[in-house]
Design a protein around this nucleic acid. Structure first.
Lengths: 197, 197, 197, 197
DNA sequence: GATGAATGAGCTTTCATTCAT
DNA sequence: TATGAATGAAAGCTCATTCAT
């Protein structure tokens, strides 16, 4: 007799929104904006076409929302690293691991897709330009300096080293996204050789 | 106006074909198959829509042709490396340089796109599966073994090292393709640290 | 909470029905059938989407119900005029006033929309064809004749005059429905000049 | 052998554009923006869906283009009237005739639709607000004053009379657009009684 | 060989309608 | 009775491909 109460509705809405975003992240991160058809997201989420538009105004808005959330997520991850105990080397290693694992990878893939794709709205590009890579460098550079002082990180201009390291990590993540036996993801130890003495 | 003779026609045909392929390579390598519109290729090549279809049956065929040519090109490059004088380390370095430079990069990007993209015809996937990465490993593995014996390459299972190294190189190439200031391409010296002692 | 008794339920039902019809009339009369979205009616009525379908089978049925009610209303108005004391001219003037005022206008707009719109079900078209304009002419024609005899109405074929007059009135009502400063509704005196000596 | 030359292409493009605009005017003016489906325009013009988008970016842009052209056309018509010899009464009569005839009517219907419809972009609304009715009043008001001096036009505030007269004409045009036997378009003589002594 | 107007399959998006609560 | 999340048919729009010239 009674309709659902406010609390239940909010819960349903949140769940559904998460469900759609999770499905969309999965598809977008692999295929990019143009390569992703709404039907793929819809199928992945197990819902109808129309429902996506109940929660997101357009494919574009859905993508931008994901990018924004990816940036937020990566910033949280970085704060966690910063406050974590351990040597500079440990922290850098931890960050690299976070980037490469199943949780982190899609976000970096998404950011890469955002930079690559045609259909990406300027808004998303701006967001990425301002927040994504820049923040990483800002946090990592001091860690690199510290590592150099601690004798674990190779000498060299820290900013450049960080940028190079992130570029390699991003590249590996992108390639790793391809479900293909032939690309082999290097382990952390190997990747860390890039920046250690 | 005198009609063109046979030879001239053949020449025009070949030139046009090259022109279209060059344009298509440029676009496909950055945007992938779905991300590339025929109009982009047409604009890049400075020709009409119709003309592409005089030379290639479809967008798909054009892409497959490029993949085939990319594979041929990379095989040539590898033979050149093989026959080049110098230490194993020198050869590996040279190969890495070739992959990363303006000439080589588009081919690897294309192969990556072929693996990634949805719209890629099975034919192209087969081609790549058989020839591309496998060949590299086949040639590089002995070089890695030799390098280990010469004391320049780090110890470890050679096949795995080669695959990892190629994965990193491919990743860097893909990321480098994005026209974006923030991704910073590491120099060869840094990348070689991945596999050296 | 005590359950509502039969009488209360009936009352709620009637009120809700009226509420929906009033909202629908407001929107349909301005925007027509295709131009009206259920969400507009729902918003105007301040109820939920689902509730409309408790009272009306479809958007179509809701519209037809309104048309029927409009016709009923206009017939009542005409009987009132007929039985009203006064000269033919007075009666005609009164009718014109009734048509133009806030009460009457929506009905005429609705009838106009029914004639215009694509999405109008055949049933509504039939209703209108049979009852709406014809009735007016049937009642007004004798009044015009009487007015001509009384020397207030200009000479001319009465049927045609009535039809022309009604066309003008309908047109003015339709244009007046547009919330726009630039359309200026003429006053009754001016409009009556169309048919007076 | 040779492709079409520039001149021929321009001609084809112009013709096609006109053809689409004529078809769209016909449909839009009767049905409004929402009521008009692209398939209707396409069918009326006898072309394919895609072709419309070769010439107009969207349904919206097509509509705005028509509105703009309607405004231009009506301004031309008014200049012609202004420069025409004859009494003020003659000129007003001529303008009214122009508005009502088959040529002029669709334009006024279009402008009416633009004011009514939901889907009309702000751009079109602005255009109309600035140019359409205002211009008419600007030109007609002096004619009314002149007519009052010449003793043909009834006394009264000229601006208001003009606005009222135009409202009636627009209303008649809208109603006349309905293909319905029951609405009867009054003749010019009758309509002019609205404003004459 | 070369052009670009024209086509139409397929994708994105809207909105009347349904249904679990 | 009342709600609004969910559905899906149909509309708008894109783009690979064709074809008259």
């Amino acid at each position: 007799m009674a309709p659902l109460n406010e609390e239940q509705l909010v819960q349903i809405r949140d769940e559904r929104r998460e469900q759609i975003m999770a499905a969309a992240l999965k598809v977008f991160s692999r295929r990019g904006v143009v390569g992703t058809k709404m039907s793929m997201i819809v199928k992945e989420a197990g819902i109808s076409h129309g429902l996506v538009y109940h929660y997101f105004k357009s494919k574009e808005e859905l993508f931008v929302t994901l990018v924004r959330s990816a940036i937020d997520g990566s910033q949280d991850a970085m704060l966690a690293i910063k406050n974590h105990p351990g040597s500079a080397y440990d922290k850098i290693r931890m960050l690299a691991e976070d980037m490469l694992d199943e949780q982190g990878a899609p976000y970096f893939q998404l950011i890469y897709q955002a930079r690559t794709s045609e259909g990406v709205p300027e808004e998303a590009k701006q967001l990425i330009y301002k927040y994504s890579m820049g923040d990483y460098i800002e946090i990592l550079a001091p860690l690199f300096v510290q590592g150099q002082q601690e004798g674990t990180i190779a000498s060299g201009e820290p900013g450049e080293m960080v940028a190079s390291f992130l570029t390699v990590l991003t590249g590996v993540i992108m390639v790793a996204a391809v479900e293909d036996q032939q690309y082999h993801i290097p382990d952390i130890e190997m990747l860390l050789k890039l920046i250690t003495k």
